[in-house]
Design a binder for these strands. Structure first.
Lengths: 340, 340
DNA sequence: CCTGGCACTCGACTGTAGCGAGTGCCAGTC
DNA sequence: GACTGGCACTCGCTACAGTCGAGTGCCAGG
């Protein structure tokens, strides 16, 4: 598989042209639009090799060539430089963060910004509770037997849940419970709490124990197991860009996938330390998303990562541009979080 | 405009057939499928009248008839009975509410349920803060100059916001502030708070005044003006049902409209006391949604209304069925809220 | 007022033909 | 040995003509 420099240049040119025009690209058009310094016939020979190796394919016998997932992969890995942002884009990113007022606000602005910049579907995961530390736990009596538990995490996330207590709880007990849980849990990572919570129950006075037991169950259940992750989405209308050519005519499977939190989390949540991840076409594990690509990365204050964000679009997308934007946005969001 | 009973029956039959088959319906097919007791020719005459009056139209000269928005309107207002729910649907609604654990949970389950039952896009507005009463306000110190304000409303809604105070605040001050705002505001409707909040500032001791002023600004700003409304959405994949026939081939405008909270709020939020509202085609004010219909209603504990919910789909939708489901779901959600 | 009959319209479908972009291959050239 | 120009070939796309049939409007008669 001798892919010499010119063949790679041809592949790059094919990807770039196809992404730009959305039309299969032929040998003649290629030599006209790129300075390859050879004739169409030569390019055709190169194309034949590229096709044999599975990097491009012909939709029909008499049509031009289109990159395969494998071709995009090679392009992303070896043939493209991350595109520097334009001043306008840079400005847009800077502007979006002024006036962000709390975490919800930051996340919503971020996801809209990302959708607008990349013209793709944008996905932002809220800072993961598992990676957050408890900053404060508040217990608010709602009725004699009901407490509202509010947890504030150091990442700014706030989760609440109603707890039905085994019996009526006097105000002093609430105060005691509040003090105890805060003493024990504040500052610890959510993922490390289970033993701590257990200890809380064990160490409680007999009077508080039943209440503490219920409370601890709910804490573990809600804050560790359930909602846990939360996700914001924007730019779904961008899926209709490019007519019905992308996504082989049906948005259905894509829209379905986007409604599943679990799917989105898998796509953008499982990010290894600070690399930008690119999933092309069927590289991702969901059948519904075989016609889509995902560019994602982690973000967080400083160098830690508390969540993921990214964009989803047709495999025929501007990878260098999108990678640049996803990274830039992640970095800015990280800085913003670090300020709090 | 003499629309005798038979003409109305013909219109009803056209709507029903068209909704079911998605194809223009002709006079012959009509008499075959419905017991109208007259010949196709007669039906044709009736159709001519209906068309003249603007209730139906012909897509092409040689095609059958299709209801117009006006036709659907007449159908909804005078020709249809609300369809009783099937046992399966009833069961689905009942099942969805078991195990709902807090407001977020209720809203999410509701919107998914509604999307699944109606096979349309479902929209649920969180209980409006303007119609909620303050149950508790919590102030949590985040740093020496920062407070997290958490407001819990009687509808279960919890809103929070970070406040940057004018200067460092000692713990005692936080305690005082907390006591003051709670004394003054708990139990009052959010929409009525502005004067109360102002009074709080005026009555503060000089020591607390600057802090209270900042706090009040934020309270008004965040809880009354901004986020205020919140919305959940589900079932967007249902838009692709029925191919590209509905929505004249492009989902674009619809998807765009669905990304605008303001639009959704206008559609389902402005509900008059407990009637079910049906907006057909261009009856709604948004150009993007001229090809869509919306069925919505208010919900709330008992007979009060705290928010709206509804579904959005093609004008060619099963109005009687959707109206029934929207109502049923709203009633169940109301009961659920009343229990808390 | 309803009905059967009839002429008419027009979209959907089919088949044919020509065009042109694009290819693969081959023989010739540097 | 690598590149190139030339050439025959493929095949999707478009235009056009013809047919079919669902559906209509109208009219005369019951």
């Amino acid at each position: 598989m001798g892919l010499d420099d010119r063949k790679l240049a041809v592949l790059r040119a094919i990807v770039e042209d196809y992404v730009a025009t959305q039309e299969p690209v032929g040998s003649k058009a290629l030599v006209e639009r790129h300075q390859l310094g050879v004739s169409p016939a030569t390019v055709r020979n190169d194309m034949a090799v590229l096709e044999e190796e599975g990097y491009i394919r012909q939709p029909h016998t008499s049509a031009g060539r289109v990159p395969t997932d494998r071709g995009y992969r090679l392009f992303v890995d070896r043939l493209s430089r991350v595109k520097p942002l334009s001043p306008a884009e840079r400005r847009a990113i800077e502007r979006f963060l002024v006036g962000a007022v709390d975490l919800d606000d930051v996340v919503h602005r971020t996801v809209r910004l990302l959708a607008q910049l990349t013209r793709q579907v944008a996905v932002v995961q809220y800072p993961s509770l598992a990676r957050s530390k408890v900053r404060h736990l508040e217990l608010v009596p709602i009725s004699t037997t009901r407490l509202m538990v509010v947890m504030i995490a150091d990442t700014g996330r706030v989760e609440q849940r109603l707890v039905e207590m085994p019996g009526p709880i006097p105000t002093e007990d609430v105060t005691d419970l509040r003090r105890l849980v805060n003493e024990k849990l504040v500052g610890s990572r959510l993922s490390e709490t289970p033993p701590l919570v257990q200890a809380l129950v064990d160490e409680s006075t007999p009077r508080l124990r039943p209440a503490m037991a219920t409370l601890s169950t709910v804490l573990l259940e809600t804050l560790v197991e359930r909602h846990e992750e939360r996700i914001a989405l924007a730019g779904q209308a961008n899926l209709t860009r490019g007519g019905l050519l992308d996504f082989q005519g049906s948005l259905r499977p894509i829209l379905e996938a986007l409604e599943e939190e679990v799917v989105l989390l898998k796509l953008i949540g499982e990010t290894e330390p600070s690399t930008t991840r690119v999933l092309i076409g069927d590289e991702n594990e969901f059948d519904n998303l075989r016609a889509a690509s995902v560019v994602s990365t982690g973000y967080g204050p400083g160098s830690t990562i508390v969540g993921g964000l990214g964009v989803l679009g047709p495999t025929r997308m501007d990878y260098p541009g999108n990678i640049a934007m996803v990274r830039a946005v992640a970095r800015y969001v990280g800085e913003l979080l670090a300020q709090n």
